[in-house]
Design a protein around this nucleic acid. Structure first.
Lengths: 221, 221
DNA sequence: AAATTATTTTAGATTTGCCTAAATTTTGCT
DNA sequence: AGCAAAATTTAGGCAAATCTAAAATAATTT
Protein backbone atom coordinates (compact mmCIF):
# COMPACT_ATOMS: atom_id res chain seq x y z
CA UNK A 1 0.00 0.00 0.00
CA UNK A 2 1.45 3.32 -1.07
CA UNK A 3 1.55 6.58 0.86
CA UNK A 4 -0.29 9.63 -0.42
CA UNK A 5 3.06 11.17 -1.42
CA UNK A 6 4.00 8.08 -3.41
CA UNK A 7 0.63 8.05 -5.14
CA UNK A 8 1.01 11.70 -6.05
CA UNK A 9 4.37 11.00 -7.68
CA UNK A 10 2.83 8.24 -9.78
CA UNK A 11 0.09 10.60 -10.91
CA UNK A 12 2.58 13.34 -11.73
CA UNK A 13 4.63 10.94 -13.82
CA UNK A 14 1.52 9.71 -15.58
CA UNK A 15 0.52 13.26 -16.38
CA UNK A 16 3.97 14.06 -17.81
CA UNK A 17 4.07 10.96 -19.98
CA UNK A 18 0.57 11.70 -21.24
CA UNK A 19 1.38 15.32 -22.00
CA UNK A 20 4.78 14.74 -23.62
CA UNK A 21 3.81 11.49 -25.32
CA UNK A 22 7.20 10.17 -24.23
CA UNK A 23 8.04 6.93 -22.46
CA UNK A 24 10.34 8.49 -19.87
CA UNK A 25 9.86 11.36 -17.46
CA UNK A 26 12.84 13.43 -16.30
CA UNK A 27 13.62 14.32 -12.71
CA UNK A 28 13.25 17.99 -13.52
CA UNK A 29 9.79 17.70 -15.04
CA UNK A 30 8.60 15.58 -12.14
CA UNK A 31 9.95 18.16 -9.71
CA UNK A 32 8.13 20.88 -11.63
CA UNK A 33 4.87 18.95 -11.71
CA UNK A 34 5.10 18.15 -7.99
CA UNK A 35 6.23 21.63 -7.00
CA UNK A 36 9.21 20.16 -5.19
CA UNK A 37 13.00 19.95 -5.55
CA UNK A 38 14.90 17.63 -7.87
CA UNK A 39 16.66 16.15 -4.85
CA UNK A 40 13.34 15.08 -3.36
CA UNK A 41 12.35 13.54 -6.67
CA UNK A 42 15.53 11.48 -6.84
CA UNK A 43 14.82 10.10 -3.37
CA UNK A 44 11.26 9.21 -4.21
CA UNK A 45 11.83 7.63 -7.60
CA UNK A 46 14.53 5.43 -6.08
CA UNK A 47 11.97 4.25 -3.58
CA UNK A 48 9.32 3.62 -6.22
CA UNK A 49 11.93 1.78 -8.26
CA UNK A 50 12.62 -0.50 -5.31
CA UNK A 51 8.89 -1.15 -5.07
CA UNK A 52 9.00 -2.11 -8.76
CA UNK A 53 6.56 0.54 -9.87
CA UNK A 54 9.12 2.50 -11.88
CA UNK A 55 12.04 1.59 -14.13
CA UNK A 56 14.88 3.85 -13.13
CA UNK A 57 18.44 4.25 -14.33
CA UNK A 58 20.47 6.96 -12.65
CA UNK A 59 20.56 10.14 -14.72
CA UNK A 60 18.12 8.76 -17.31
CA UNK A 61 14.66 9.44 -15.90
CA UNK A 62 11.92 6.94 -15.20
CA UNK A 63 9.27 4.90 -16.98
CA UNK A 64 6.42 2.84 -15.57
CA UNK A 65 6.62 -0.85 -14.93
CA UNK A 66 3.47 -2.76 -15.83
CA UNK A 67 2.46 -2.71 -12.19
CA UNK A 68 3.20 1.00 -11.85
CA UNK A 69 1.08 1.81 -14.87
CA UNK A 70 -1.83 -0.19 -13.51
CA UNK A 71 -1.58 1.58 -10.16
CA UNK A 72 -1.57 4.95 -11.92
CA UNK A 73 -4.59 4.06 -14.01
CA UNK A 74 -6.40 3.05 -10.84
CA UNK A 75 -5.65 6.48 -9.40
CA UNK A 76 -6.86 8.22 -12.57
CA UNK A 77 -9.98 6.09 -12.42
CA UNK A 78 -10.67 7.03 -8.82
CA UNK A 79 -10.02 10.69 -9.46
CA UNK A 80 -12.34 10.90 -12.43
CA UNK A 81 -15.12 8.84 -10.85
CA UNK A 82 -15.09 11.12 -7.82
CA UNK A 83 -15.14 14.16 -10.10
CA UNK A 84 -18.14 12.71 -11.87
CA UNK A 85 -19.83 12.07 -8.54
CA UNK A 86 -19.17 15.58 -7.27
CA UNK A 87 -20.48 17.15 -10.45
CA UNK A 88 -23.51 15.01 -11.20
CA UNK A 89 -24.67 14.11 -7.68
CA UNK A 90 -23.53 16.97 -5.49
CA UNK A 91 -23.94 19.67 -8.15
CA UNK A 92 -20.41 21.02 -7.82
CA UNK A 93 -19.39 23.24 -10.72
CA UNK A 94 -16.58 21.75 -12.80
CA UNK A 95 -14.00 24.28 -11.65
CA UNK A 96 -14.21 23.03 -8.02
CA UNK A 97 -14.22 19.27 -8.41
CA UNK A 98 -10.53 18.71 -9.13
CA UNK A 99 -9.25 19.86 -5.76
CA UNK A 100 -11.68 17.73 -3.77
CA UNK A 101 -11.14 14.68 -5.99
CA UNK A 102 -7.40 15.06 -5.31
CA UNK A 103 -8.18 14.12 -1.75
CA UNK A 104 -10.87 11.53 -2.36
CA UNK A 105 -8.72 9.58 -4.82
CA UNK A 106 -6.41 8.49 -1.99
CA UNK A 107 -9.13 6.66 -0.07
CA UNK A 108 -8.21 3.00 -0.13
CA UNK A 109 -11.03 0.58 -0.83
CA UNK A 110 -11.52 -1.32 -4.03
CA UNK A 111 -15.11 -2.10 -3.09
CA UNK A 112 -15.79 1.60 -2.60
CA UNK A 113 -14.74 2.42 -6.15
CA UNK A 114 -16.59 -0.54 -7.62
CA UNK A 115 -19.79 0.46 -5.86
CA UNK A 116 -19.34 4.12 -6.74
CA UNK A 117 -18.85 3.14 -10.39
CA UNK A 118 -22.04 1.11 -10.28
CA UNK A 119 -23.94 3.84 -8.43
CA UNK A 120 -22.95 6.33 -11.13
CA UNK A 121 -23.90 3.81 -13.82
CA UNK A 122 -20.39 3.25 -15.19
CA UNK A 123 -19.65 6.68 -16.67
CA UNK A 124 -17.13 6.72 -19.53
CA UNK A 125 -16.09 10.38 -19.32
CA UNK A 126 -15.59 12.78 -16.45
CA UNK A 127 -17.03 16.33 -16.31
CA UNK A 128 -14.03 17.70 -18.24
CA UNK A 129 -14.55 15.13 -20.97
CA UNK A 130 -11.56 13.01 -19.95
CA UNK A 131 -12.07 9.26 -20.33
CA UNK A 132 -12.49 7.22 -17.16
CA UNK A 133 -10.48 3.96 -17.18
CA UNK A 134 -12.56 0.91 -16.34
CA UNK A 135 -11.60 -1.66 -13.68
CA UNK A 136 -9.06 -3.19 -16.07
CA UNK A 137 -7.48 0.15 -16.87
CA UNK A 138 -8.82 0.49 -20.41
CA UNK A 139 -10.27 3.68 -21.82
CA UNK A 140 -13.20 4.18 -24.17
CA UNK A 141 -11.84 6.18 -27.06
CA UNK A 142 -13.84 8.50 -29.33
CA UNK A 143 -13.02 10.76 -32.23
CA UNK A 144 -12.83 14.35 -31.18
CA UNK A 145 -11.55 17.56 -32.74
CA UNK A 146 -9.90 20.64 -31.36
CA UNK A 147 -12.29 23.49 -32.01
CA UNK A 148 -9.36 25.74 -32.89
CA UNK A 149 -8.63 23.60 -35.95
CA UNK A 150 -12.18 23.83 -37.35
CA UNK A 151 -13.07 26.61 -39.74
CA UNK A 152 -16.13 25.57 -41.70
CA UNK A 153 -18.90 28.17 -41.52
CA UNK A 154 -22.35 27.18 -40.21
CA UNK A 155 -21.07 23.83 -39.05
CA UNK A 156 -22.48 22.65 -35.70
CA UNK A 157 -20.67 20.77 -32.94
CA UNK A 158 -21.19 19.25 -29.53
CA UNK A 159 -18.65 20.11 -26.85
CA UNK A 160 -16.95 16.95 -25.56
CA UNK A 161 -14.37 18.33 -23.19
CA UNK A 162 -11.49 20.65 -22.47
CA UNK A 163 -7.71 20.34 -22.54
CA UNK A 164 -7.04 22.75 -19.66
CA UNK A 165 -8.51 22.28 -16.20
CA UNK A 166 -7.60 25.74 -15.01
CA UNK A 167 -10.28 27.00 -12.68
CA UNK A 168 -10.60 30.48 -14.17
CA UNK A 169 -10.74 29.07 -17.67
CA UNK A 170 -13.57 26.73 -16.69
CA UNK A 171 -15.51 29.52 -15.02
CA UNK A 172 -15.12 31.58 -18.17
CA UNK A 173 -16.50 28.73 -20.30
CA UNK A 174 -19.41 28.38 -17.87
CA UNK A 175 -20.25 32.04 -18.39
CA UNK A 176 -20.36 31.41 -22.16
CA UNK A 177 -22.43 28.23 -21.80
CA UNK A 178 -19.62 26.20 -23.33
CA UNK A 179 -19.83 22.92 -21.44
CA UNK A 180 -19.68 19.21 -22.31
CA UNK A 181 -22.91 18.20 -24.04
CA UNK A 182 -23.68 21.74 -25.20
CA UNK A 183 -24.03 22.69 -28.85
CA UNK A 184 -21.90 25.26 -30.68
CA UNK A 185 -22.16 26.69 -34.19
CA UNK A 186 -19.36 28.35 -36.12
CA UNK A 187 -20.65 31.61 -37.59
CA UNK A 188 -17.32 32.92 -38.84
CA UNK A 189 -13.69 31.96 -38.83
CA UNK A 190 -11.14 34.71 -39.04
CA UNK A 191 -7.99 33.30 -40.65
CA UNK A 192 -6.05 36.41 -39.84
CA UNK A 193 -5.97 35.96 -36.04
CA UNK A 194 -7.52 32.47 -35.96
CA UNK A 195 -10.46 33.71 -33.90
CA UNK A 196 -13.97 32.27 -34.13
CA UNK A 197 -17.39 33.81 -34.04
CA UNK A 198 -19.65 31.22 -32.42
CA UNK A 199 -23.27 30.84 -31.46
CA UNK A 200 -23.98 28.98 -28.24
CA UNK A 201 -27.03 26.98 -27.20
CA UNK A 202 -28.70 30.10 -25.84
CA UNK A 203 -28.29 31.78 -29.27
CA UNK A 204 -25.75 34.20 -27.90
CA UNK A 205 -22.96 35.30 -30.23
CA UNK A 206 -19.46 34.68 -28.88
CA UNK A 207 -16.08 35.87 -30.11
CA UNK A 208 -13.41 33.35 -29.13
CA UNK A 209 -9.64 33.71 -29.51
CA UNK A 210 -7.60 30.75 -30.69
CA UNK A 211 -6.05 30.54 -27.22
CA UNK A 212 -9.49 29.51 -26.00
CA UNK A 213 -10.65 27.46 -28.98
CA UNK A 214 -7.47 25.39 -28.90
CA UNK A 215 -8.48 24.12 -25.47
CA UNK A 216 -11.97 22.99 -26.47
CA UNK A 217 -12.73 19.48 -27.75
CA UNK A 218 -15.80 18.87 -29.91
CA UNK A 219 -17.48 16.36 -32.17
CA UNK A 220 -19.49 17.05 -35.31
CA UNK A 221 -23.24 16.97 -35.29
CA UNK B 1 -5.57 22.87 9.20
CA UNK B 2 -4.81 19.72 11.16
CA UNK B 3 -2.97 16.61 10.00
CA UNK B 4 -4.73 13.26 9.85
CA UNK B 5 -2.82 12.16 12.95
CA UNK B 6 -3.94 15.24 14.87
CA UNK B 7 -7.54 14.70 13.80
CA UNK B 8 -7.40 11.10 14.94
CA UNK B 9 -6.23 12.18 18.37
CA UNK B 10 -9.16 14.57 18.69
CA UNK B 11 -11.55 11.79 17.74
CA UNK B 12 -9.96 9.38 20.21
CA UNK B 13 -10.28 11.95 23.00
CA UNK B 14 -13.88 12.62 22.05
CA UNK B 15 -14.65 8.93 22.16
CA UNK B 16 -13.09 8.55 25.60
CA UNK B 17 -14.95 11.51 27.05
CA UNK B 18 -18.20 10.22 25.60
CA UNK B 19 -17.65 6.71 26.92
CA UNK B 20 -16.45 7.67 30.39
CA UNK B 21 -18.76 10.64 30.77
CA UNK B 22 -15.79 12.50 32.23
CA UNK B 23 -14.43 15.91 31.36
CA UNK B 24 -10.77 14.84 31.15
CA UNK B 25 -9.04 12.07 29.24
CA UNK B 26 -5.86 10.48 30.59
CA UNK B 27 -2.70 9.91 28.60
CA UNK B 28 -3.01 6.18 29.14
CA UNK B 29 -6.56 5.89 27.83
CA UNK B 30 -5.66 7.98 24.79
CA UNK B 31 -2.65 5.76 24.12
CA UNK B 32 -4.89 2.71 24.39
CA UNK B 33 -7.53 4.16 22.09
CA UNK B 34 -4.89 5.19 19.52
CA UNK B 35 -2.91 1.97 19.80
CA UNK B 36 0.24 3.94 20.48
CA UNK B 37 2.64 4.67 23.36
CA UNK B 38 2.03 7.10 26.18
CA UNK B 39 5.16 9.01 25.18
CA UNK B 40 3.71 9.68 21.74
CA UNK B 41 0.49 10.85 23.32
CA UNK B 42 2.34 13.33 25.51
CA UNK B 43 4.05 14.75 22.42
CA UNK B 44 0.81 15.11 20.54
CA UNK B 45 -1.35 16.56 23.30
CA UNK B 46 1.31 19.19 23.94
CA UNK B 47 1.05 20.13 20.28
CA UNK B 48 -2.74 20.25 20.31
CA UNK B 49 -2.55 22.30 23.49
CA UNK B 50 -0.33 24.83 21.73
CA UNK B 51 -2.89 24.96 18.93
CA UNK B 52 -5.50 25.73 21.61
CA UNK B 53 -7.63 22.71 20.88
CA UNK B 54 -6.94 21.02 24.21
CA UNK B 55 -6.54 22.22 27.79
CA UNK B 56 -3.53 20.44 29.17
CA UNK B 57 -1.80 20.49 32.54
CA UNK B 58 1.16 18.17 32.89
CA UNK B 59 0.21 14.92 34.62
CA UNK B 60 -3.50 15.79 34.73
CA UNK B 61 -4.85 14.72 31.35
CA UNK B 62 -6.65 16.85 28.80
CA UNK B 63 -10.02 18.40 28.11
CA UNK B 64 -11.35 20.11 25.02
CA UNK B 65 -11.27 23.83 24.48
CA UNK B 66 -14.38 25.23 22.86
CA UNK B 67 -12.57 25.23 19.53
CA UNK B 68 -11.30 21.67 20.03
CA UNK B 69 -14.78 20.42 20.79
CA UNK B 70 -16.18 22.07 17.68
CA UNK B 71 -13.44 20.54 15.53
CA UNK B 72 -14.19 17.11 17.01
CA UNK B 73 -17.91 17.47 16.40
CA UNK B 74 -17.16 18.38 12.79
CA UNK B 75 -15.16 15.15 12.47
CA UNK B 76 -17.97 13.10 14.02
CA UNK B 77 -20.38 14.80 11.63
CA UNK B 78 -18.24 13.97 8.61
CA UNK B 79 -17.72 10.40 9.72
CA UNK B 80 -21.40 9.73 10.28
CA UNK B 81 -22.57 11.47 7.13
CA UNK B 82 -20.15 9.39 5.07
CA UNK B 83 -21.34 6.24 6.86
CA UNK B 84 -24.89 7.18 6.00
CA UNK B 85 -23.89 7.75 2.39
CA UNK B 86 -22.06 4.44 2.12
CA UNK B 87 -24.98 2.55 3.60
CA UNK B 88 -27.94 4.22 1.93
CA UNK B 89 -26.47 5.14 -1.46
CA UNK B 90 -23.76 2.58 -2.10
CA UNK B 91 -25.52 -0.29 -0.32
CA UNK B 92 -22.60 -1.13 1.96
CA UNK B 93 -23.58 -3.33 4.90
CA UNK B 94 -23.20 -1.60 8.26
CA UNK B 95 -20.23 -3.69 9.33
CA UNK B 96 -18.05 -2.30 6.51
CA UNK B 97 -18.82 1.39 6.58
CA UNK B 98 -16.79 2.41 9.59
CA UNK B 99 -13.40 1.64 8.11
CA UNK B 100 -14.03 3.53 4.89
CA UNK B 101 -15.59 6.49 6.69
CA UNK B 102 -12.41 6.66 8.79
CA UNK B 103 -10.63 7.68 5.62
CA UNK B 104 -13.33 9.85 4.08
CA UNK B 105 -13.75 11.91 7.24
CA UNK B 106 -10.31 13.46 6.71
CA UNK B 107 -11.17 15.01 3.35
CA UNK B 108 -11.06 18.76 3.83
CA UNK B 109 -13.87 20.73 2.25
CA UNK B 110 -16.68 22.38 4.12
CA UNK B 111 -18.70 22.71 0.95
CA UNK B 112 -18.35 18.98 0.31
CA UNK B 113 -19.94 18.12 3.64
CA UNK B 114 -22.66 20.73 3.27
CA UNK B 115 -23.59 19.40 -0.15
CA UNK B 116 -23.37 15.79 0.99
CA UNK B 117 -25.67 16.63 3.91
CA UNK B 118 -28.15 18.22 1.54
CA UNK B 119 -27.86 15.35 -0.96
CA UNK B 120 -28.67 12.88 1.81
CA UNK B 121 -31.56 15.10 2.96
CA UNK B 122 -30.07 16.04 6.32
CA UNK B 123 -30.09 12.68 8.09
CA UNK B 124 -30.26 12.84 11.90
CA UNK B 125 -28.89 9.36 12.67
CA UNK B 126 -26.22 7.19 11.09
CA UNK B 127 -26.67 3.50 10.18
CA UNK B 128 -25.69 2.45 13.72
CA UNK B 129 -28.28 4.77 15.20
CA UNK B 130 -25.73 7.33 16.38
CA UNK B 131 -26.86 10.95 16.09
CA UNK B 132 -25.25 13.09 13.40
CA UNK B 133 -24.29 16.58 14.63
CA UNK B 134 -25.61 19.37 12.43
CA UNK B 135 -23.46 22.17 11.02
CA UNK B 136 -23.49 23.91 14.42
CA UNK B 137 -22.47 20.78 16.27
CA UNK B 138 -25.82 20.07 17.91
CA UNK B 139 -27.38 16.64 18.12
CA UNK B 140 -31.01 15.62 17.83
CA UNK B 141 -31.75 13.66 20.97
CA UNK B 142 -34.42 11.00 21.34
CA UNK B 143 -35.53 8.72 24.14
CA UNK B 144 -34.20 5.24 23.73
CA UNK B 145 -33.89 2.16 25.89
CA UNK B 146 -31.35 -0.57 26.20
CA UNK B 147 -33.13 -3.76 25.19
CA UNK B 148 -31.34 -5.63 27.95
CA UNK B 149 -33.20 -3.60 30.55
CA UNK B 150 -36.67 -4.37 29.16
CA UNK B 151 -38.56 -7.35 30.44
CA UNK B 152 -42.24 -6.84 29.69
CA UNK B 153 -43.75 -9.75 27.81
CA UNK B 154 -45.43 -9.18 24.43
CA UNK B 155 -44.17 -5.61 24.28
CA UNK B 156 -43.04 -4.47 20.82
CA UNK B 157 -40.11 -2.24 19.95
CA UNK B 158 -38.35 -0.62 17.06
CA UNK B 159 -34.59 -0.99 16.88
CA UNK B 160 -32.90 2.43 16.96
CA UNK B 161 -29.25 1.52 17.06
CA UNK B 162 -26.39 -0.34 18.67
CA UNK B 163 -23.78 0.48 21.30
CA UNK B 164 -21.01 -1.66 19.82
CA UNK B 165 -19.72 -1.22 16.28
CA UNK B 166 -17.80 -4.46 16.24
CA UNK B 167 -17.93 -5.96 12.78
CA UNK B 168 -18.72 -9.51 13.83
CA UNK B 169 -21.43 -8.33 16.18
CA UNK B 170 -23.08 -6.34 13.40
CA UNK B 171 -22.95 -9.27 11.00
CA UNK B 172 -24.56 -11.42 13.66
CA UNK B 173 -27.39 -8.91 14.10
CA UNK B 174 -27.85 -8.81 10.32
CA UNK B 175 -28.31 -12.57 10.31
CA UNK B 176 -31.06 -12.16 12.94
CA UNK B 177 -32.73 -9.26 11.08
CA UNK B 178 -32.04 -6.97 14.01
CA UNK B 179 -31.34 -3.65 12.31
CA UNK B 180 -32.33 -0.01 12.85
CA UNK B 181 -35.96 0.48 11.83
CA UNK B 182 -36.83 -3.20 12.34
CA UNK B 183 -39.47 -4.37 14.78
CA UNK B 184 -38.86 -6.72 17.72
CA UNK B 185 -41.27 -8.35 20.18
CA UNK B 186 -40.36 -9.72 23.60
CA UNK B 187 -41.85 -13.18 23.93
CA UNK B 188 -40.16 -14.10 27.20
CA UNK B 189 -37.67 -12.68 29.62
CA UNK B 190 -35.61 -15.07 31.69
CA UNK B 191 -34.67 -13.30 34.93
CA UNK B 192 -32.30 -16.10 35.84
CA UNK B 193 -29.71 -15.46 33.13
CA UNK B 194 -31.22 -12.19 31.81
CA UNK B 195 -31.75 -13.70 28.37
CA UNK B 196 -34.60 -12.77 26.05
CA UNK B 197 -36.77 -14.74 23.74
CA UNK B 198 -37.64 -12.42 20.86
CA UNK B 199 -39.62 -12.45 17.66
CA UNK B 200 -38.17 -10.55 14.72
CA UNK B 201 -39.90 -8.91 11.78
CA UNK B 202 -39.75 -12.18 9.81
CA UNK B 203 -41.59 -13.96 12.67
CA UNK B 204 -38.51 -15.93 13.55
CA UNK B 205 -37.97 -16.77 17.22
CA UNK B 206 -34.61 -15.63 18.60
CA UNK B 207 -32.90 -16.39 21.86
CA UNK B 208 -30.64 -13.51 22.87
CA UNK B 209 -28.17 -13.37 25.74
CA UNK B 210 -27.89 -10.23 27.84
CA UNK B 211 -24.45 -9.65 26.38
CA UNK B 212 -26.20 -9.01 23.08
CA UNK B 213 -29.35 -7.29 24.32
CA UNK B 214 -27.29 -4.82 26.34
CA UNK B 215 -25.83 -3.53 23.08
CA UNK B 216 -29.16 -2.92 21.34
CA UNK B 217 -31.06 0.37 21.58
CA UNK B 218 -34.81 0.45 20.99
CA UNK B 219 -37.90 2.58 21.35
CA UNK B 220 -41.39 1.46 22.29
CA UNK B 221 -44.06 1.05 19.70
C1' DA C 1 36.99 18.07 -28.37
C1' DA C 2 37.01 21.21 -24.74
C1' DA C 3 34.46 24.18 -22.07
C1' DT C 4 30.33 25.86 -20.35
C1' DT C 5 25.67 25.02 -18.96
C1' DA C 6 21.98 22.18 -17.40
C1' DT C 7 20.51 18.30 -14.99
C1' DT C 8 20.86 14.94 -11.55
C1' DT C 9 22.58 12.97 -7.50
C1' DT C 10 24.70 13.06 -2.93
C1' DA C 11 25.32 14.89 1.62
C1' DG C 12 23.63 16.84 5.52
C1' DA C 13 19.52 19.06 7.94
C1' DT C 14 14.66 19.67 9.30
C1' DT C 15 9.84 18.36 10.69
C1' DT C 16 6.28 15.09 11.96
C1' DG C 17 4.90 11.23 14.28
C1' DC C 18 6.34 7.51 16.26
C1' DC C 19 9.44 4.36 19.36
C1' DT C 20 12.11 2.57 23.92
C1' DA C 21 14.26 3.37 28.16
C1' DA C 22 14.95 6.20 32.03
C1' DA C 23 13.45 9.72 35.17
C1' DT C 24 9.76 11.97 37.44
C1' DT C 25 5.31 12.59 39.48
C1' DT C 26 1.02 10.95 41.18
C1' DT C 27 -1.83 7.43 43.19
C1' DG C 28 -2.99 3.80 46.16
C1' DC C 29 -2.08 0.87 49.99
C1' DT C 30 -0.81 -0.60 54.59
C1' DA D 1 2.66 9.14 56.54
C1' DG D 2 5.55 6.62 53.92
C1' DC D 3 6.44 3.34 50.33
C1' DA D 4 5.40 0.68 46.24
C1' DA D 5 2.96 0.68 42.01
C1' DA D 6 1.10 3.05 38.22
C1' DA D 7 1.03 6.76 35.16
C1' DT D 8 3.33 10.41 32.87
C1' DT D 9 7.00 12.91 31.06
C1' DT D 10 11.72 13.46 29.34
C1' DA D 11 15.56 12.10 26.58
C1' DG D 12 17.41 10.24 22.70
C1' DG D 13 16.51 7.94 18.23
C1' DC D 14 14.32 6.46 13.84
C1' DA D 15 11.75 6.68 9.24
C1' DA D 16 9.36 9.45 5.78
C1' DA D 17 9.34 13.35 3.02
C1' DT D 18 11.02 17.42 2.45
C1' DC D 19 14.84 21.17 1.95
C1' DT D 20 19.59 23.62 0.46
C1' DA D 21 24.20 23.38 -1.03
C1' DA D 22 27.79 20.92 -3.12
C1' DA D 23 29.47 17.33 -6.19
C1' DA D 24 28.96 14.45 -10.19
C1' DT D 25 27.31 13.53 -14.70
C1' DA D 26 25.23 14.60 -19.17
C1' DA D 27 24.14 17.81 -22.85
C1' DT D 28 25.15 21.79 -25.58
C1' DT D 29 27.86 25.18 -27.62
C1' DT D 30 31.71 27.10 -29.71
Amino acid sequence: MLSIAEENYLKAIYKILEKTGSKEASTKLIAQEMGTSSASVTDMIRKLNEKELLNYEKYYGVSFTKEGLKYSLDLIRKHRLWEYFLHTQLQFSWDKIHEIAEQLEHVKSEELIDRLDQFLDYPKYDPHGDPIPNKNGSFTFRTQFILGNLTEKNKEFIVLGVRSHDSEFLQYLDSLVIQPGRRLKILEYNAFDQSHLLQNEDHKILSISNKISNEILVKEL
